[in-house]
Nucleic acid binder design. Structure first.
Length: 301
DNA sequence: CGTTGAACCTGTTTGC
DNA sequence: TGCAAACAGGTTCAAC
């Protein structure tokens, strides 16, 4: 469900709704998606949620110092939350009955509960302090909204993997998922199966621009709600109305009217326009020798 | 390095 | 109608 724009939307909502609130107690249901459930129960009560940040597809609930820290130095701590495919985190009145698949409830000091609901439990929750937190965050690549031309080009052009796989790889860029990968490739007119190293610098820059444009627009519209995504206020997003490729198999391309196709790339459904996004040249099927055409590459500055 | 498929779960949609 | 298969916004891991 949630990619960068959806997570950003939830994080902003939570910042408005629960930042500054103190956690009174923690109630757990199923815990197989929590790194260390006991740590949540023991370390969170009494702590204040100081602010909510987004890091790729993660939310970081930054916590106040522990009144009785286990270590002498109060370590900067956070609750790391990943929504997986079907996760949601939102406040509700404590007296309100919990929805099915509510696995974590944080009782707040104002009579509400911050509830984590996740039918498939593909999400993740972890209480982390300074060192473990910074190690955890180091695995991730550049922030798509901030990455500059040069860094983006370096990260893409140096790789022989398919561009779709690179966009989905969180250690290359953090926060892109299947929807926004397809949408940005459509906008930049790049076939999802092209290798990163086969893009020209101009194509890479076009892709970066497309990505940033789409993500910013999607955030304004509070993300895409395909089936059940709701923000912290319980509102659906609207960006699904603006999808140009994702989910549009058999419908007309908005640019050229060619029918959008769906293929599997990097193990994921990939929607693209076969006319606007030309397929890469197929690899020669291991012939004797590949003869190079003389004078075939005339490049201009 | 890179690809593929399976696994982790539940719910919904599609097809026969 | 009924049942099974396919599919879903994500990530990780083993095998090759």
């Amino acid at each position: 469900m949630p990619e960068l724009p959806e997570v950003e939307t939830v994080a902003r909502g939570l910042q408005q709704l629960v930042a500054g609130r103190r956690i009174v107690s923690v109630s757990l249901g199923k815990t197989d998606f929590i790194d260390d459930p006991v740590a949540l129960e023991q370390r969170l009560p009494g702590r204040t949620i100081e602010r909510i940040e987004r890091y790729g597809k993660f939310m970081l609930l930054r916590l106040s110092a522990d009144a009785q820290p286990a270590t002498p130095e109060p370590a900067a701590a956070a609750l790391l939350v990943h929504l997986g495919m079907t996760g949601n985190l939102a406040p509700a009145p404590a007296a309100q009955p919990s929805e099915k698949h509510t696995h974590v409830r944080f009782l707040l000091d104002d009579g509400r509960e911050l509830r984590y609901i996740d039918p498939r439990r593909f999400g993740r929750m972890a209480y982390l302090e300074k060192d473990t937190l910074s190690i955890e965050l180091q695995r991730f690549g550049a922030e798509p909204l901030l990455v500059g031309k040069n860094e983006f080009a370096e990260r893409i052009l140096s790789r022989r993997a398919q561009i779709k796989a690179l966009l989905l790889n969180q250690s290359v860029l953090r926060g892109i998922g299947n929807i926004y990968a397809d949408e940005s490739l459509w906008r930049a007119k790049i076939h999802p199966a092209k290798l990163g190293s086969s893009l020209t610098p101009a194509e890479a820059e076009s892709l970066r621009k497309a990505l940033q444009h789409i993500l910013e627009r999607a955030i304004v519209l509070r993300g895409s709600s395909i089936s059940d995504f709701l923000d912290a206020d319980g509102q659906p997003g609207e960006y699904q109305q603006h999808h140009r490729a994702y989910g549009r198999e058999g419908e007309k391309c908005y640019r050229c009217k060619t029918l959008i196709r769906r293929i599997i790339v990097a193990g994921r459904s990939s929607y693209f326009c076969p006319y606007c996004q030309r397929a890469p040249k197929r690899k020669p099927v291991a012939k004797r020798k590949t003869k190079r055409k003389v004078g075939a590459k005339t490049s201009k500055g």
